[in-house]
């Protein structure tokens, strides 16, 4: 899937339109607009304090934007994310991971992935009565949930650690488990907050391979392709795996395009090197 092709042809998955976020007098994000396309890995980059995480938190519902619109083009219609509460955004099809990993440390890897499927499973419990009595309909649903969890454990190479508490896994494995957990919510868009932070080069390579497989729908058995939006500091990863890069600085979008173009953009180089601060 070449970047140039997807830029022109693919329909959008997420439209960010004039997104503005003010904290009191501080404008953290100032009228940022960009589009993430279906089947792409879109990267959001920028120097520290550029407003990447704020944009990210608006998309995932942890902040409510002061102004602007966020539209998710999921399979079952368009969701206006800026009007939804955080858990509704997750249900609409946006899954996220956290910069400082937020797993359920006292629960096993498998349980973590089952918690991610709470919403569809809950619908099958018949107000708890069917499940309380252990009846067939719920059992079938739970078996399907376990199968999906196992598929993702296999995809993230964690199958042999399935029954270990998440808190006991090594750091790299925790990062992978968090991605697996996000994928178990069956999202349309996977949002990753610095997924490569703290990984060694070998783990970073594995992560890049996993993200490409998620984009192409080959990561786990029977799972559809999912578009990816990521914030990343590691330029190596950004340049190798992204199809589209959006650069922020001081809360504004300063460049956008395929990695090869963005890499040679003069304003981007200036922003990263701290030169020519002429605004």
């Amino acid at each position: 899937m070449s970047a140039a092709l997807s830029m022109q042809d693919a329909p959008p998955i997420l439209e960010v339109e004039a997104l503005t976020m003010r904290f009191g007098g501080l404008v953290a994000v100032d009228a940022v607009s960009f589009t993430a396309r279906r089947g792409d890995i879109t990267a959001l980059i920028g120097p520290n304090g550029a407003g990447k995480t704020t944009v990210f938190n608006c998309i995932t519902g942890f902040y409510r934007p002061s102004d602007g619109a966020l539209r998710l083009h999921a399979a079952d219609g368009v969701a206006e994310l800026h009007r939804l509460k955080d858990h509704r955004i997750a249900r609409a099809g946006v899954a996220r991971t956290f910069q400082n990993i937020r797993l359920f440390p006292g629960m096993t890897a498998l349980e973590n992935l089952l918690v991610a499927q709470t919403v569809p499973l809950q619908a099958k419990t018949g107000f708890g009565i069917v499940a309380l009595l252990g009846l067939g309909a719920y059992r079938k649903a739970e078996a399907a949930a376990v199968a999906r969890a196992v598929a993702w454990l296999r995809a993230t190479n964690l199958l042999d650690r399935a029954d270990d508490p998440a808190g006991a896994l090594p750091y790299g494995a925790q990062r992978r488990l968090e991605i697996a957990r996000a994928m178990c919510t069956a999202p349309s868009l996977l949002c990753l907050d610095e997924p490569a932070a703290g990984l060694n080069p070998r783990e970073s390579d594995e992560l890049a391979r996993l993200l490409r497989a998620i984009r192409d729908g080959t990561a786990a058995e029977g799972e559809p392709a999912v578009s990816v939006l990521l914030i990343e500091h590691d330029m190596g990863i950004v340049m190798t795996i992204s199809d589209h890069v959006v650069v922020l600085d001081h809360g504004r979008k300063i460049a956008e395009g395929p990695p090869a173009v963005v890499r040679n953009d003069r304003t981007v180089i200036a922003a990263y090197l701290g030169e020519g601060d002429d605004d």
């Binding site: 858990h87 918690v115 709470t118 919510t185």
Partner: peptide
């Protein structure tokens, strides 16, 4: 009990 914010991100009410 383990992490409320992660619960929100998974769509749990």
């Amino acid at each position: 009990r383990e992490d409320e914010i992660a619960c929100r991100a998974l769509g749990i009410n």
